[in-house]
Design a protein around this nucleic acid. Structure first.
Lengths: 328, 328
DNA sequence: CTGAAAGCGCTTACAG
DNA sequence: CTGAAAGCGCTTACAG
């Protein structure tokens, strides 16, 4: 049987209360007893039972993180920094993965988080539905969306996606390109794409360029989408530069053009959005709008209210920059 | 306040026992009551408290998965399939990430798993130390290592790494290459590399090729290692083919050679080990020994004993194959 | 510095 | 079909 506090108490000749105190070093006991208790606990291979502990102290310092096995690859960086920052603050993190396009699955996962009484749940590259947000609010759990400002009733940490689209486009225009493609998921369905596309349109307009519908290729955030889009542009070919809405898409574009003997950047220039490590790992290297995913992760943890605070909605915008590499 | 079972009981005019039964649909009540209870629970926004539940039922069907934010990219696939298989079996999974080269951190994380009373913990691309294994065994938790057969006192699911090294090498030799490089982490420190290297040596020997120490480049599993190795081979240059011990390494090799104007495969051929999606996303595409990571994940879940079984050590070997693409 | 006691929210024999 | 009661392993006022 697993050792419990009462076993230690018996051996030490103390009450369970005392044992609990030293185990949680709450002070109010002699160094002596402390040492003795710790030794016994150790000999017994004692480990606290979290369920019992959480239940008794009716509080919980763990935070839930939900992400999808997405086509994009920036999750890792965000999560890594969430972990680092959480450790600093002595918060526990539990991760769960949602399958893409499986709303029921997401709901299940969120239920699991609620049952575990986490004090906040963070969604990375996932769109929690209004119902899910409501569930969470009702359960007095703080919901946060990371990397996506989909809904202003929820706190979020993300880049200014409109500005990203705007600056990517402006950069290209100032380099002299006039016919600029845009590859993304469906711009009415996907909010991030919608924002970036709006910024793109805004820049075109400001520069007196009229948008042609063939310039837009809608599919997903994936590598394959980039491949497909490259064929599209070759076919309808008046484009001299393309914006890929994720590094994966841009990588697909790059390889797709390569396979079609279209030279990048001499025939068609490319700029990617995200700017993960991948951009330096392609040949030629991808010029990108680079988001600060590390900062996003850290900020998300800081944003989570320490206790069961009032659920103020807070929105934090993370700065981005442009990294000029070799594709434009 | 959050609704609890007693709140439902009060409203329904029933005992908490009955509520518990219908909530867990254990049968032994009328459809009537069931419906009524469910409705009340719903109206109240009731969610079970896992801590209380786990504590009371002294059992736990959750499994812990620990992985590192590693340089290699196959984790995702393994984890994804762990999740899928776990869901089928109605097991809960909780994920935790260990930082690389942080043994204390790993110990902390394992402690967390023990405190949470998971019934098994799976290590992906992580070397649990003997002490950690001992902790787990003592806590009656089933330890499993995935993708790495480091220690025969622990159950594992992995490929036959010796055979992988052997076949990769033999493939190259049969293609006519005679001077074959091998890039990996330290082969005495890293057990997987050790095994693969042994297979490599065995094949060389069988084919009457004598190994030269310049053929071996030891560093890590990362992309950068591939870059570094390419410079090494260009300098000591009698090699006509190279084995990269991970897809990341091979990608680095490919790009490194490209930057140095060494043509792949005409000047130097390449074969990668792992065979993730990445291999089709490089130009030229990487020929690879392809491991079945999806099967590994599934198998790992199947291997975990349903209950607190006797801790038999089981070892499962997953088949691999060779995918010929463009680099050799 | 230490202990007796109540309680956290559930589950499960046991009895009817 | 339903309930009273004990118990899961901890924590925390309260009292000394």
């Amino acid at each position: 049987m697993r050792a419990k506090i009462s076993d230690i108490a018996k051996i030490a000749g103390l009450s369970t209360a005392s044992i609990s105190r030293v185990l949680n070093n709450q002070g109010g006991y002699s160094k002596e007893t402390a040492k003795r208790v710790m030794k016994i606990a150790n000999d017994l291979g004692y480990f606290k039972d979290r369920s019992a502990s959480d239940l008794a102290r009716r509080s919980n310092n763990t935070i839930g993180v939900i992400y999808t096995d997405f086509e994009t690859n920036f999750n890792d960086l965000v999560i890594k920094n969430i972990m680092i920052e959480a450790k600093k603050r002595h918060l526990d993190v539990i991760l769960m993965i949602a399958q893409q396009n499986d709303p029921d699955g997401l709901t299940k996962i969120v239920q699991g988080m609620i049952e575990r009484r986490v004090f906040a749940v963070q969604f990375i590259s996932t769109h929690p539905s209004p119902q899910i947000i409501q569930m969470l609010n009702q359960a007095a759990i703080f919901p946060q969306v990371i990397g996506d400002a989909t809904d202003h009733t929820v706190s979020y940490v993300s880049s200014d996606d409109m500005a990203i689209g705007y600056h990517a486009t402006t950069y290209l225009i100032e380099k002299g390109y006039r016919s600029i493609g845009f590859v993304s998921p469906n711009i009415t369905t996907d909010y991030v794409s919608h924002l970036r596309f709006s910024g793109y349109r805004k820049s075109l307009k400001e520069h007196g360029i009229s948008f042609k519908s063939d310039w837009l290729f809608e599919e997903s955030y994936s590598y394959q989408t980039g491949i497909h889009a490259s064929a599209h542009y070759q076919k309808y070919g008046d484009v001299d530069a393309v914006i890929g809405v994720s590094d994966e898409v841009s990588w697909g574009l790059l390889n797709g053009f390569y396979d079609l003997n279209v030279s990048v950047p001499s025939d068609i220039a490319l700029i990617s959005i995200d700017g993960t490590e991948l951009c330096s790992q392609t040949r030629p290297r991808l010029t990108s709008v680079t988001q600060d995913f590390a900062l996003m992760g850290k900020t998300a943890i800081k944003q989570a209210p320490k206790k069961a605070d009032p659920h103020r909605v807070t929105a934090v915008t993370i700065p981005f920059k442009i990294n000029i590499r070799e594709t434009s």
